[in-house]
């Protein structure tokens, strides 16, 4: 029978905590940039300009048909020169930068679909009412439609955030030491991969399960 030895975990807590910070940094950046860029894409897609609408649709469809692993590798192996041109030479850890960019652009495609459905869930009468009140279309979108849309889709946006939190573990493919990457390295270093992998799984489970319970409670309150 396998003999478990959990002794390498306590000493690795500071390293693992650092890893968790990287995980959170990638997750939060992707949520914020993803929602902003996703909203713009959704509005462009629903808007009256056919060129913008097509471009937005192409962007969303492209990112939704390619595996996240490929997107991360694209941004790490293939386009760092582009990133350097944008952010300057002094971008620090290219792995972190390329992961942040890859996740933000990738998540935007998924958020944009949720937001598009949210906008469409607001009745047409509301838009007519907004315009009748003398708002410009832009004001109507910002002051009338989006607040209601975001209220309707908050649970979905949060659920997507939990999925995103899990997906950040894929930065493993570019060797970035997020929570999972650190756990793997510690396990490899101490020859205790079995224990570290199980530990990582348990930590993810506790975080994601608690978060999804919170989302459910929120959902119940919204439904009232």
């Amino acid at each position: 029978m396998y003999e478990f030895d959990w002794s390498s975990i306590p000493g690795a807590i500071p390293l693992l905590a650092n890893g968790l910070l990287i995980t959170l940094e990638v997750t939060l950046t992707a949520i914020v940039v993803g929602i902003v860029w996703g909203t713009i894409l959704a509005i462009a897609r629903l808007g009256s300009n056919p060129v913008l609408s097509r471009l937005a649709a192409a962007y969303v469809n492209l990112f939704r048909s390619v595996p996240l692993v490929m997107v991360i590798l694209w941004f790490y192996l293939i386009v760092p020169q582009g990133l350097k041109a944008i952010f300057g030479n002094d971008i620090g850890d290219i792995r972190l930068t390329s992961a942040l960019v890859a996740f933000a652009l990738f998540e935007a495609a998924y958020y944009s679909e949720i937001i598009r459905a949210g906008i469409q869930s607001v009745s047409k009468g509301q838009i007519a009412a907004g315009l009748a009140l003398g708002f410009t279309p832009g004001q109507t979108m910002r002051l009338v439609v989006l607040p209601q849309a975001f209220r309707n889709m908050t649970p979905l946006l949060l659920t997507q955030a939990i999925i995103l939190f899990q997906d950040t573990s894929l930065v493993y493919v570019i060797g970035l030491s997020d929570f999972f990457g650190t756990a793997y390295k510690v396990g490899d270093r101490d020859g205790r991969l079995v224990e570290l992998l199980l530990f990582a799984g348990a930590v993810y489970f506790v975080i994601c399960f608690s978060a999804s319970l919170l989302v459910k409670r929120l959902q119940a309150r919204f439904a009232k």
Partner: peptide, 11 residues
Amino acid sequence: RNIPLLVQLFI
């Protein structure tokens, strides 16, 4: 649903 796919795969 609450454990990342990659972690499950390694397990």
